Simulated scan of single mutants.
Amino acid sequence: MIDLCKRFGHRTGLCPEPAPSGNDAPDRKAWQTVAPGRVEPWSGEIRIGSPGVGRIGDVLVTVNDTVFAGEALIRLDDDEVRNRHAKAELQYSLRKRARPSAQRRNAERRKHEDAVADAERAVVDERAAVDRAAAAKRAGTGSDDDLATARKNLSNAREQLRQRQAELASYEDDAPATTPTELDQQVAMARLDLRGAEAALDNLTIRAPIAGTVLQVNVRAGELASPSAPQPLVIIGDVSKLRIRAEIDERDYGAIKVGHRVIVRSPAFRDREVKGTVSSIAPIIGAGRIGARGQRNLTDVNVAEALIDLAEPGPLAVGMKVDVYFSREAAQR
């Protein structure tokens, strides 16, 4: 790789800038090779897109906000989905009130099915309460305690739902087969329609899949969201720790091992070195992406991705390009 850089310079975008000379440069005899890298969150960058086409109703977070797993980030507007949910909710309520008292052989089944349905409704209600508490906290009208209480209630509701589902499954395993009445069948169908409508309604709220920090927000209220959009709506990541994604020249693939010690340097902080360790190496060779600009050419090289765990991030920031020096001493052990 060094010969390639000497011959073609650094036009490929895959060769790191020449190491500083003098006291600022690591000892060339001490490192096996050098590779370009990029700083990323410990979780990687979680790029969140839209599940469907819709207009952005509310953007609930801003850059640098800390979010919890499941927190609402964006709400889409779709009157058709909301109307369908309201209709399904009304139909279910009417069908349930219209059915007569169950006969003894069907009473136990009805009791378990209704318990599951009630538990499902409780989860929906408690999730909405969490969304309201989170929004109030961000607006300054709510507290951490209110949000913690709402999240605890949601967790309890989900546990109750699991228990009711387990009780229904146990009853169905042991109970003799019975034929439900026509009205019971209508209630069951209305219940299925309501579940589908609730799922569609919940899809209008785009939630954080993990706990982390909002790194980027690429939309505003009123804009159109689409699954085919080139940019994600939001990027989040766990920045409690950082790591480096480096690209090793395929000719150095056999020399670099998991556990290899490295030194990371950034052009922005030439007087700082950050120590790290190789935690994984991809089992596939492919085109480099970190330094690529435009179409590849004959001077481009194929690379393998390696993840570097940092002892401490120092001044590095997510997205920053760095040079990763792989210790020759570690390679010889």
Rank of each mutant, 00 (worst) to 15 (best):
A221V: 10
N218H: 15
K137R: 08
T12S: 15
R132P: 00
A317M: 09
V274F: 05
A330V: 01
R104Q: 12
K29A: 15
A107K: 12
A122K: 15
A122M: 13
E329A: 10
N302W: 06
N297I: 03
N302T: 01
A188L: 08
A98I: 01
N302M: 02
P36C: 01
V219A: 15
H260N: 13
V61Y: 06
A282N: 11
E17H: 11
I206F: 10
D77H: 12
Q160R: 13
V214T: 09
A292S: 06
H112W: 00
I74S: 08
N106S: 10
R158V: 00
Q231C: 03
R243A: 05
D184N: 13
R289Y: 03
C15S: 01
P41M: 09
A229T: 13
P36I: 10
K275N: 12
V39M: 04
I210C: 02
A190D: 07
N156A: 08
E71N: 10
A169W: 00
V187M: 05
A166N: 12
E45L: 06
N153G: 02
I2M: 03
F326P: 04
D58G: 03
E126W: 05
N23K: 08
D77V: 09
V59C: 12
G291I: 02
H10S: 05
G254T: 05
R127A: 14
T66P: 00
G276Y: 04
I236Y: 10
D24P: 00
A304Y: 08
H260V: 00
G52N: 08
E40K: 10
I48W: 08
V61F: 04
D114V: 08
A188N: 11
R265V: 01
Y92V: 01
G222Y: 08
L90Y: 12
K257E: 07
A221N: 11
